[in-house]
Structure formats: C-alpha cells, structure tokens
Simulated scan of single mutants.
Amino acid sequence: MLQEVQQEFRRIFQYWETHDVDPRGGFYGRVDAQNRPDPAADKSIVLNARILWSFSNAYRVTKNPAYRTLADRAFAYIQQYFMDAKHGGVYWSVQADGTPRVTTKQLYGQGFALYGLSEYYRATKQVEALTAAQQLFRTLVERAYDPKNGGFIEAFHQDWSNTDEYILSKGELRKSMNTHLHLIEPFTNLYRIWPDASVQKHVRSMLEHDFMQHIIDPTTYHMRLFFTEDWQVRSSEVSYGHDIEASWLLYETAEVLNDKALLAKTKELSLKMATVTLEGLNPDGALTYEYNPETGHRNEDRSWWVLSEQLVGYYNAYQLSGKQHFLEKARKSWEFIKTYLLDTKNGEWYEKTDAAHHPSLKADKINAWKCPYHNSRACYEIMHRIQPK
C-alpha cells in the first residue's frame, strides 16, 4: 500500500499543477469533469485555503520547489483578495477577478484560512504567514467565541455583527459540529508553530468542553451535528465520515497538547468513535455517507472525502489498538479508492460513486468543495504513519 499511496500523492499534485493554475492569478474556482476550467467561476476561501494547506504540506514533506511555488501563489492570492483589511477575517468568496462576492464571515471558512496559513508558515517559516495566522486567531477569539457557553458562533456579517446567513446551518442553529471540527484542526496546527497560552487554552477547551461534553454523544459515540447557542441538540442524523475523521483528528489534538492524562482519555474516545462507525461500513469497504435513525433514510453514496478519512481513521485505530481488523479495514478502504474513485483517464478522484459503484462522471473535478485537501492529506498521513521520520 505504501508505494501506491506515495505514487498517488504525487499524481494528485501533478493534476492540480496542470489543471487549476489561473494565469490571471491564483487558481480557477471550478474545473469540470473533462478538466475544462471555468474562468468566470467565483473563487471560495475553502478551496483556496485548502490549496494553500495542501501545497504547503507537500512542500514541507518533499521539499519539491514546484510545490513551494504554488504554495506561495496561494498565500499571495489569499493575502491580496480574501483578507478583509478593515474588519478582519476573510471573505467567504470572491469573483473571478478577485472582487469580493460573499463577504459574510463564516467560521468554517475562517478555520480553513487559519489551517492554510499555519501550515504555510510551518513549511516555509515566512514571518508574514505567522503574523497573519496570529491576527486571524485573535480576531476569531474576539469576535466569534461564546464566553458564556463555550464554542464559536457559526457566522457573522462582514463587520462581525450578528447574522443568520449561515452556510452549514440556519435560524436558531448557531453552532455546528462541522465548523467546530474544522476549527480545532487549525487551532491545533497553530499551536504547533506558536505555543501561545491563549491558543492552548482554546484548543483544550474545544477538545474537553465542546467535543467531549457536547458534540460527541456519550451513549452512542456518534457526533451530534447541530446546536443552539447554549448547545441544545437539534439534529438526529449520523455522519459516518465526520465521525471517523474526528476520531483521528481529536487524537492528534491530544498529542499536540502533550498531556498524558488527556491523551489516554482521548485514545479511549477515539477508538470508541472509530468502532461505532463500523455499523455504517458496507461489505465493499466503504462507509455509508449519512444515516437518519429517525426516518431510517441512508445516503448510500460512496464519497471521495469519506473514503479518504476512513483510510486514515481506521489506520489510526489500528495504531492505537493493535487490532488487525482495523488495519484490514484501512487496506480495504484503499482498495475501494483504487478500484472505484481514481479517474485513470482524466486524473484526480471522482467525487463519489453510488451504491452500485457507478462514478459521478459529470461532477466537477474542482469546485468550492472539491479540493486537494482530503485525498492528499490521506496519502500523507498513511505515508507518515507507515514510514515515520
């Protein structure tokens, strides 16, 4: 598996180098299934920040100068077009020419901007990136942290006044699992490069308070998805992909915090979370996308990002437990990816297949949500875990 994953890691970046560089600056906001760019497509912070993280991570690992060049390009574009110099934070999206499009401050997008900036500094030691990451962190804590109930509010207007214009939720649903998962991820990465007491405080609070006390159900070990401001649960759906993703990301957070008692507690939790996802694992080795226990509805799509996360999550569970069946499930995840998700003709991965393994032949290869982050990170994690340095 190692050699195949190493090869795929290179293949992913070769695709993005070839097909997504916008000669006008930055990267195209959309490329279709036939690798045709849409020069008029809006550009999202999620896509651009994930590109920044991915190429920064690739450069840090390989020292390939081509990856550094594209990480530099992503950083420069975000700095010039996404940063809100007046109010702080980043825009959700800009038009193809860089003019702001959606200026609301979605915490999900802020988190990925922080993830990209912190990884770029980790890879390059560019002081401007560290300064930008520190400033963004302080803005999020000042503007979006809920000091009464803990956690972070989902979104704000451009000037950080209250809004109900959420991307991931709406109305009374002021907090979400997804946003908090993708905040603890960059906060943890920031703590790696800047071990500041305030960062440590918020990372620990998100792990011990937000996730362990509110987001993770203490009876099922699935994560709850949506909440009111005071953490009242307003959802019943199960997201198997997010469960398995969180199982390894939260353990990574505990590792970075380097607290033995917390690490032991998180290890136990991580294994329970990985174990409960097995109820959604199909005989073909792929996790069901989502399940609603109230209605019985199951979304049986086999998603590229879910397969990426289960590859890492089951391998992590194998490392933590020594149980061979987790290793076999990681290997079977990779076999599914190879067999059904890799587009050997046009490159990159299909977005998904259905339960009968028919791939999404018409779905974009690149858009606001189809980015190099999940699959390149999965390859990196497996490489790093099999051959740690």
Score class of each variant (00 low, 15 high):
Gln14Thr: 15
Trp16Ser: 01
Glu17Ala: 07
Thr18Glu: 13
Arg36Gly: 03
Ile45Lys: 01
Ser56Cys: 06
Lys63Asn: 09
Thr69Ser: 03
Leu70Asp: 05
Ala71Phe: 04
Asp84Lys: 11
Ala85Pro: 11
His87Ala: 08
Tyr91Trp: 10
Val94His: 06
Gln95Met: 14
Thr99Lys: 15
Thr103Gly: 09
Leu107Cys: 07
Tyr108Trp: 14
Arg122Gln: 07
Ala123Asp: 04
Ala133Leu: 04
Leu140Tyr: 13
Ala144His: 06
Ala144Val: 07
Tyr145Leu: 04
Gly151Met: 09
Trp160Glu: 01
Thr163Cys: 13
Glu165Cys: 11
Ser169Trp: 07
Leu173Thr: 11
Arg174Trp: 13
Ser176Met: 09
Arg192Pro: 08
Ile193Met: 03
Pro195Cys: 07
Ala197Pro: 00
Met206Gly: 04
Glu208Lys: 13
Asp230Tyr: 08
Asp230Thr: 12
Trp231Arg: 02
Val233Ser: 11
Ser236Trp: 04
Val238His: 08
Gly241Trp: 01
Ala254Cys: 14
Glu255Trp: 05
Asn258Gln: 14
Ala264His: 12
Ala264Trp: 14
Lys272Leu: 08
Ala274Tyr: 01
Leu281Arg: 12
Ser321Ile: 08
Ser321Val: 05
Gln324Lys: 13
Ser333His: 12
Ile337Tyr: 10
Lys345Met: 13
Gly347Leu: 05
Tyr350Gly: 12
Asp354Gly: 15
Ala356Gly: 11
Ser360His: 13
Ser360Thr: 12
Asp364Ala: 15
Lys365Leu: 06
Ile366Arg: 01
Asn375Leu: 04
Glu381Tyr: 03
Met383Ala: 09
